[in-house]
C-alpha cells in the first residue's frame, strides 16, 4: 500500500506518445488516393451520361410542342411534333402499376412481419419474393404475353405493359414494406395493445403511419425504376405515333417505345426525338425521386 502511494509521486520518465511513423503516413496517402480514384471511376460515367442526355436532349424538350403534340401523321424527317403520347403512356402505365402493386405489396409485407413471422407460409412467401426479385424484365413480359394475350385472348395494350411491370414492382414493394415495418419499435405496438387497441387497428393506425415515409420512398423509387423498363413494353405493348388515352385497349406508346422506334429513324429528326425522349424519361424519374423525398419529409416522424 505504502509503496504504491510513493510510486504515484514519482515523475513519469520519457514522453508517453510518439509521432506518426513514416510507414503509417505512406499507407494513409495510398489509401486516400485509392478511395478518391474509386470515387472518380464511379462518378465520371454518371456525369458523362447525364451530360450527353442534356446536350443532345435539351433542344427538343425545350420546344413547347414536345409536351403538347404527338407524332401523328408526321414523316420521319419532319422536324416537328412531340412526345405527348409517349409521356402520357409512361405516366398512366406507371400509375396503374402503382395502383395494383401497392395494396398487394403492402398487405403481403404486413402479413410477413406482423402475422406470419416464423410460419411456413411466410418462409415460402419470402423465398418466392426473393426469386421474383431476380426475374429479368423480359421474362415478366413473356409471362404476361403467354397468360394475358395468348391464353386469355386480350390484345396488346398499355395495361398489358402495366401487368408485366407489376411483376417487377410487387417484390420491391413487399421488400420495402417488410424492412420498414421491421424497424418500427415493438414498444409502440405494445403501447397500443396496452391501451386496449386490437392488433389490426394497431397495425393500421400506429405501425403503418410510423413506417409510412419509408414505404412511400421505396414505392416511388421502385416506380422510377420500372418506368424505364423496355423489354416488357416491346413484348406486350406496341408503339403508336398518336395519342391513345385508353390504357386498356389498343396500342399505347411510352417513352422507351418511342426511343426504340425513333432510334431506327436515320433522319436528324429521329436523332432529336430519341434524345428528347431520353431527356424526358430522366426528367420524369428525377421528378418521382424528388416527390419521394418531399413526401417522406412531410410524413416523416416529427421531433
Amino acid at each position: 500500500m505504502t509503496t504504491a502511494t510513493t510510486d504515484l509521486h514519482r515523475p513519469a520518465t520519457g514522453p508517453a506518445f510518439q509521432g506518426v511513423g513514416l510507414g503509417r503516413k505512406v499507407k494513409n496517402a495510398v489509401a486516400t488516393t485509392l478511395v478518391a480514384l474509386a470515387f472518380l471511376v464511379a462518378v465520371v460515367p454518371l456525369v458523362w451520361v447525364l451530360w450527353s442526355v442534356l446536350e443532345k436532349g435539351l433542344q427538343p424538350v425545350l420546344h413547347a410542342d414536345w409536351w403538347t403534340h404527338s407524332l401523328y401523321g408526321l414523316r420521319p424527317y419532319d422536324d416537328r411534333g412531340g412526345a405527348y403520347h409517349a409521356i402520357y403512356g409512361t405516366v398512366v402505365q406507371a400509375l396503374s402499376t402503382a395502383v395494383l402493386s401497392v395494396p398487394v405489396g403492402v398487405m403481403v409485407g404486413v402479413y410477413l412481419v406482423e402475422y406470419g413471422a416464423g410460419t411456413r407460409l411466410a418462409r415460402v412467401t419470402t423465398f418466392m419474393v426473393d426469386i421474383l426479385t431476380g426475374v429479368p424484365s423480359i421474362v415478366a413480359g413473356l409471362f404476361v404475353y403467354a397468360l394475358w394475350i395468348s391464353i386469355l385472348g386480350f390484345g396488346r395494350s398499355g395495361f398489358a405493359v402495366s401487368l408485366s411491370l407489376l411483376l417487377l414492382m410487387i417484390p420491391v414493394v413487399i421488400r420495402t414494406t417488410e424492412e420498414m415495418l421491421r424497424i418500427v419499435p415493438n414498444e409502440l405496438r405494445e403501447a397500443s395493445y396496452a391501451l386496449g387497441v386490437p392488433k389490426w387497428k394497431t397495425i393500421v393506425k400506429i405501425v403503418l403511419p410510423t413506417a409510412m415515409s419509408g414505404i412511400v420512398t421505396g414505392v416511388m423509387l421502385g416506380l422510377a425504376r420500372v418506368m424505364g423498363e423496355t423489354a416488357p413494353a416491346l413484348i406486350v405493348g406496341a408503339y403508336a405515333s398518336s395519342i391513345n388515352l385508353n390504357v386498356f385497349d389498343g396500342n399505347q406508346a411510352n417513352l422507351p417505345l418511342l426511343m426504340n422506334d425513333q432510334f431506327a429513324n436515320p433522319e436528324t429528326a429521329g436523332f432529336n426525338r430519341t434524345w428528347g425522349a431520353a431527356m424526358t424519361l430522366v426528367l420524369i424519374i428525377m421528378l418521382f425521386n424528388l416527390l419521394a423525398t418531399v413526401i417522406s419529409r412531410l410524413s416523416a416522424i416529427k421531433k
Binding site: 419499435p185 414498444e187 409502440l188 405494445e190 403501447a191 397500443s192 395493445y193 396496452a194 391501451l195 386496449g196 387497441v197 400506429i206 403511419p209 410510423t210 409510412m212 416522424i301 416529427k302
Partner: peptide, 27 residues
C-alpha cells in the same frame, strides 16, 4: 382486459406520428 388494465413501460414510448394531444387521447 387491456382496456381495463393499463400499462406504463420502462422506456417512454409516445407514438411518434402523433401530437401531444393525439397521444393522450389515442386510446
Amino acid at each position: 382486459v387491456r382496456r381495463t388494465i393499463g400499462m406504463v413501460f420502462q422506456r417512454p414510448n409516445p407514438f411518434p406520428t402523433m401530437s401531444i394531444r393525439d397521444n393522450v387521447v389515442a386510446g
